[in-house]
Nucleic acid binder design. Structure first.
Lengths: 252, 252
DNA sequence: AAAACGACTTGATCAACATCAAGAATTTCT
DNA sequence: AGAAATTCTTGATGTTGATCAAGTCGTTTT
């Protein structure tokens, strides 16, 4: 009896239908029936701790993963010891899509803090999507969205100044936290300055100086990992490039 | 009778089973029967001329497109009139994948020379892939590959020097021409220096100077759009970063 | 063929950001 | 708690590649 209760409790925890992230995640747009079927193949492992790898480049690919709490950094370890940070992932986001191509992870994923994930065995997902057109459609959409996000990032790295990059970075987190029901203007970043710089193609020192400058200009307040955005409209102006940022200074 | 012959000829031209690109393209890994079914939904339009748009950002999305001859540039028109070149596409390559997300093209595609394409209505492709698991698998692989390529490009723009970028660019074309049965060391680039620079996040002048420098160093010969790679191994050394390029100079 | 235009090249200068260096603040380890 | 190791910040200097400017070559127009 007791064990039945425990099992039941576990099931509830895993179920997409009870998950606040469902609208951001794989179940988006699926009927409750379809969500139930999807649920049947999803597994939840034990949580990862800061610094634990979810997978490493070269590992055989079995499962896509959705972050359910915490945050994850993906990076591609490059030949000469260095690394390129590819992304920071928040709850509801799906990672591992790049590994479908040849059944092998091309990049690594590491927990930035205590992090829980749902695992979705890809071969089962594939089979299920063959008989559930809504799921297939959602998969195509998610893969396409990933491509769209990557191309936005290409524009960022190809054309934008350091200032524009950091503003874009901050607003991306602002929007994503907001979507998840958290404050859009007051949050903690789980990654280091070094990781931010690597991601944005900037030196650590440049990132640090920009935080200081943004603070001096009353765009934000920052203390270590804690960031408070004070003038989101002006940050958006900065993202747009063109030094219109100054002209549209918020009525202070 | 005559008209039957013409129709038949047209059919042969369109058929994937007779296409030399099949192994690079959507039919890759499909059985002949499956290729036949895929064929049934593919359309070929009239060729595009240099400067013609295949689609523009904002257009409603109907079809994926495969280049069958010629070449195409994709770019995202950015707010302030400028553009970010996202890619150059050769025969066998599939474009439009980013538009699946919300049925709307997010970027534009323009022919760099006389170019023929196959059109694949996406809704039909989706339906077909629901009943052809091999096709579904291939679609997932292609989408995943696109993501992988984008992340490689992120590393290029985030971390690499101008020299490394141009070497990477040239070797990418070398490899792709080779795959298609053309010379890996002697080819014509269909895009301008300006477009190369935009794509690589460099100024036109920098691209021009690098071509000159590479030529001075006997890495290649270049005249206008015509490029001959003279020392491919050393170009690979340059791509690797670390100035090992000099030490592994080819035995001259 | 001459003229006009656009693409490419080359040179000179400049600016943004990287790198080097050192110190301050935090976190981790024992 | 105290020491060691990180992480972050700040300053000084350097370098890469952008920008500005001018000229050459090639192509298109008339």
């Amino acid at each position: 009896m007791t064990s039945r209760k425990v099992v039941s409790f576990e099931n509830i925890k895993v179920a997409c239908k009870n998950c606040s992230l469902a609208t951001l995640c794989l179940p988006m747009g699926l009927t409750p029936d379809d969500v139930e079927r999807l649920d049947s193949i999803i597994k939840r492992g034990r949580p990862y701790h800061r610094g634990d790898h979810l997978y490493r480049g070269g590992d055989k690919f079995h499962s896509l993963r959705v972050i359910t709490s915490g945050s994850v950094k993906t990076y591609s370890p490059n030949e000469d010891g260095g690394e390129q940070v590819l992304g920071f992932h928040l709850p509801g986001e799906l990672i591992g899509l790049d590994a479908i191509q040849d059944d092998c992870h091309t990049c690594s994923a590491i927990a930035l803090e205590t992090t829980a994930v749902c695992e979705i065995p890809f071969s089962q997902l594939e089979s299920l999507s063959a008989i559930m057109s809504s799921l297939q459609h959602q998969m195509y959409r998610l893969l396409s969205r990933e491509i769209g996000q990557d191309t936005e990032m290409l524009t960022l790295l190809g054309k934008k100044s350091a200032e524009e990059r950091l503003a874009t970075f901050l607003l991306s987190f602002s929007e994503r936290f907001k979507q998840r029901g958290f404050s859009a203007s007051d949050f903690f970043l789980s990654m280091s300055r070094h990781e931010i710089g690597n991601y944005l193609g900037l030196a650590v020192e440049t990132v640090s100086r920009l935080f200081t400058r943004f603070q001096d200009e009353n765009l934000l307040r920052v203390e270590r990992k804690h960031v408070q955005l004070l003038d989101i409209p002006r940050l958006y102006d900065i993202v747009q490039g063109s030094d219109s940022a100054k002209s549209s200074q918020s009525r202070g």
